[in-house]
Design a protein around this nucleic acid. Structure first.
Lengths: 94, 94
DNA sequence: TTGATATGCAAGCCCTCACTTGCCTATAGT
DNA sequence: ACTATAGGCAAGTGAGGGCTTGCATATCAA
């Protein structure tokens, strides 16, 4: 089990969320190619797979397997843990 | 320079933000005692100091020095980088 | 000035994390 | 059945992070 804060503490994982947010339901290979094409990342398929595992473990990504493909969906719900923890209010100037 | 995501990837630092959010303008020693009293943390003063340094480097904590004391203030502005990056919208069910 | 208080700096240790490499499983096509 | 595709598992490595220890600096009080 991985909490949301640690899952977000990685630029690659944040880029994965960006891509899934732009186009939901991509497979591992699609995400790999997009990351290398559009962001110049030279990472192994396993690296991306592990990142997706972390995101899934944090609840930020839901998966659905059909055949030999696995589709990934961005789930923003866990982000509420961040936004709700520190209610934004004005700093009390002493 | 530390980004917001890494600064938040530590429960101790999140507790520090909790305490500053509850009572703003505390000194290092006040934060240390509060963390040990209310959260059972057994950390050195230097550990907390380093955590405060990370939070300040991320812009989440502003400091103000008066005499030999340093007062810490919670600044929630950098949190906008998180809330604004992935606009919450419904998952496009295919 | 002397001593206590509040904080800073720096080196070292240990553990976690991101990434790679190598091999294995399962599904689809011919 | 054979081959290619899509993905999973596990061990190993290198770098960074959290924490401690030890010493140094600066401010206040007597």
């Amino acid at each position: 089990m991985v909490d949301v804060f640690r899952a977000l503490d990685d630029e690659t994982r944040r880029l994965v969320l960006d891509e899934l947010s732009a186009r939901d339901g991509q497979t591992l290979f699609e995400i790999c190619s997009v990351l290398t094409m559009r962001h110049g990342l030279s990472l192994t398929r396993q690296a991306i797979s592990q990142h997706l595992g972390v995101l899934e473990s944090a609840g930020l990504v839901d998966t659905e397997r059909r055949g030999r493909s696995k589709f990934h969906y961005f789930n923003p719900e866990p982000l509420a843990e961040i936004t709700g923890r520190w209610p934004t209010r004005k700093r009390t100037e002493q």
